[in-house]
Design a protein around this nucleic acid. Structure first.
Lengths: 222, 222
DNA sequence: GTTGAAATTAGTACGAA
DNA sequence: TTCGTACTAATTTCAAC
């Protein structure tokens, strides 16, 4: 229980890339599948569900944590129940070469649950959870607007969260019903999906939005 | 252990609203704080960290699950490690009164990790995790575009996930260092944050985007 | 990588404050 | 309600195969 034992780099930095650790095989994937749905399952029960022995389950479990494939275990909490009924998305345009400052300020905002740097019209999207709409206004108006790095914002409210999956895994994509243990369809059997048979697309109703001002290369600059 | 014992409605539907269950006090909040950071902590250790007895911890733990405040426990998985290195946001404009179909189709797409209905220019935002950029293109072009409910899409790529907090809680907002156990600042002591002192906002560089076509009221129609 | 043991710990039920 | 204890059942660790 308690802390991680032999975890040198595992759940380290915010978005730190770690060198390629272990090769994830089918059993690893199955473990992840079980764990994302029931993070509190015992390793013994996990072993049974995956079809391996207890000792192996412990070994693999530890390996996945140490490797960083499993970053942490968390409880999914009902925001409304917790008193934060309002969720909003704020799209931010960041002034060039002020990303570092933007990031630093962001870390100081506890109401921010998620922030991603995106291509497209805006530079970043942040998701906030607050108690009421006034708090959104306060946040955008007082906090964000006062950050020099923030050039402009655009706010939308989330009316309903239609679906929220724990974590998507490659095994979800290919709907294998027939299990072939000896086949080893681990990392390689995933078909590239590049052979798009897209011939009967109705019209050009979709739009891909590339990076504005060639900002894409700037992500390391943070 | 496994399933919830006295859970009548608890972790029921996707977005089902449940009647007000238990009043969450400070200790409940502390439990949630610990659990969102370490979902696999033992109840004994949890009791110690929160400062209550084991028996109480078990009772409250169960109550939080039964109430639905804790929806589930999950493992945070490294998508890149799992083989899904590409994350994209797809903003979808949905044809009116075809929400039900849109939702149904969405449920059949395993690469969708999150979908929210929003105000603003678009109607919904979906986040997908796939192996490569080609898969994004395939998905938008073949899958989404072929859904009648989808009027238009706009896709942006996520270049970096700056921060991802397990779950935001009200207690994060007010940085209480001084603990006053007898004061009971549970749900009520949260200040409305409405008194915005926003006087020195530089300029009108922020924008609030309301619902398009009065769609806001339509969310129950799904 | 697997099985089977021992030691520890977790979960439950009860009474008392 | 909450706490503390004892009891039962489960898990984890460690050994040998």
């Amino acid at each position: 229980m308690s802390e991680i034992s032999r975890n040198g780099v595992g759940g380290g930095g915010q978005s730190g890339r770690i060198g390629i650790g272990l090769e994830l095989d089918d059993i690893h994937m199955k473990i992840l599948e079980v764990l994302r749905e029931n993070g509190r399952i015992s390793v013994a029960a996990l072993a049974e569900r995956v079809g391996i022995s207890r000792a192996s389950a412990y070994t693999r479990f530890e390996a996945l944590r140490a490797d960083g494939a499993i970053k942490r275990f968390t409880a999914e909490i009902d925001h409304v129940r917790a008193g934060l009924g309002i969720t909003a998305l704020i799209f931010v345009t960041v002034r060039q070469q002020m990303w570092k400052q933007f990031r630093a300020e962001l870390a100081r905002m506890p109401e921010v649950e998620y922030c991603a740097i995106t291509t497209g019209q805006h530079d970043a999207m942040i998701q906030v959870r607050v108690a009421d709409v006034a708090a959104v206004h306060t946040m955008v108006t007082d906090r964000l607007a006062n950050i020099p790095a923030v050039k402009a914002t655009e706010t939308v409210f989330i009316l309903d969260e239609v679906l929220k999956r724990p974590y998507v895994l490659p095994s979800d994509h290919e709907h294998d019903r027939d299990r072939d243990p000896g086949q080893g369809r681990g990392r390689s059997a995933r078909r590239p999906a590049g052979e798009a048979q897209g011939g009967d697309v109705p019209l050009g109703k979709m739009r891909f939005v590339g990076a504005a001002e060639g900002r894409a290369a700037l992500q390391k600059d943070l």
